[in-house]
Design a binder for these strands. Structure first.
Lengths: 200, 200
DNA sequence: GTACTATCCGGACCGTCAGTCCGTCTATCC
DNA sequence: GGATAGACGGACTGACGGTCCGGATAGTAC
């Protein structure tokens, strides 16, 4: 059964209203009651559509990141397949920094909702979005440097995009600085192993 | 005026109860009502002592980290002053990994409480504990590599201790793996600049 | 021991919010 | 036009963080 027209209309209205409110007030100052009111629907409708607060936030974030995720596997290089690992990694970091920068409020809302979840294995790492990103980065690292712990390093790299830090930097208008350091970090890590003790 | 004996007794009881409950159930399943009940005091007492949820969590965390923070400036090398930067950095990462590993529940509780705070400049980065750590790490990086963005790299390094990730690794009994990769990362970063394009 | 007071105690109370429930309404299909 | 699956909305619930204040008590002075 296809989604009824009124349902589709309401879903759009809710997403739109949520996005607006989230941008206007902070993450913490938007209740689902308000979202419902702003969208001109009942609260029940919000929950029927999105399950819970996290569901709504996830829908918002996915809306903004889907295109990029698809470009990772199907798009043109260097983001998509075809370029050497370091180039792809840098392209990815650029793209993800830009996304994170443009959507701090949204991502903060999503992460926050996640950490408030019940389920044992909540937490950032278990969200499908994060997993897709992580798989990608870990894969690239391992391709270039099979001797490293790509999986863990990918977590650490992605960790620097925690909305906390991004917000901190954005508040001072320094998102470009984040990007520069990430690029540096990536190049240093992927460079051919130096003759040095203590390799991983 | 010195703290009254009953007040001191209650403070200890509350800290103890909170710690126990936090370890038993998860972060999200401990309300201050319960802490009060478990400590055998009224709820008002908890709030008078610690101000709010965050205050209680902070007190718990500080209890566990004070010793290490003092060792950074006053203890023997390599943790304290006297050893070369890389050694000190590695000693610090060892110490902090151990702390984070041993106190995931506590730290998760603290971070979570922080992100629920009202104030604009909440967030991890603004807690005094984090700032002390950050200052230390950033200082060491700059000492060894004045050409790098030590401040930001310090954020990224510390970011890998976000309780999220630590919990993720601990759940699989791999805290030693985290430590190994951090050591590697630190050594690579602090190594003398290679002849490479794209330096920060 | 008594009296006095600064401080603390406890738990009833409040406002807010995520999430549920169910009687009513309506888009869609025939 | 009528039947019905599914959507609608908003009152309701339960939980929680935080406040308040009348009553209790540690500490002190004598």
């Amino acid at each position: 059964m296809v989604e009824r027209a009124d349902a589709a209309r309401n879903r759009r209205a809710i997403l739109l209203a949520a996005e607006r409110l989230l941008a206007e007030r902070g993450v913490e100052h938007v209740s689902l009651d308000e979202v419902a009111a702003a969208a001109g629907v009942g609260k029940g409708t919000v929950f029927r559509r999105f399950g819970n607060r996290t569901g709504l936030m996830r829908a918002l974030v996915e809306q903004r990141t889907m295109a990029m995720i698809e470009a990772l596997s199907d798009g043109p290089p260097p983001l998509g397949p075809g370029a050497p690992p370091l180039e792809r990694l840098i392209a990815f970091l650029d793209a993800v920094t830009e996304l994170a920068t443009a959507n701090v409020a949204l991502i903060a809302a999503y992460e926050h909702a996640l950490t408030n979840e019940e389920h044992a294995e909540r937490s950032r790492q278990s969200s499908p979005l994060y997993q897709a990103w992580h798989r990608h980065v870990a894969g690239l690292i391992v391709q270039a440097r099979p001797d490293l712990d790509g999986e863990l390093l990918a977590h650490i790299l992605l960790g620097s995009l925690h909305s906390d830090l991004v917000r901190h930097l954005l508040a001072r208008g320094e998102s470009e600085r984040l990007n520069r350091t990430l690029r540096y970090l990536a190049s240093t890590l992927l460079a051919a192993p130096a003759t040095r003790t203590g390799s991983a």
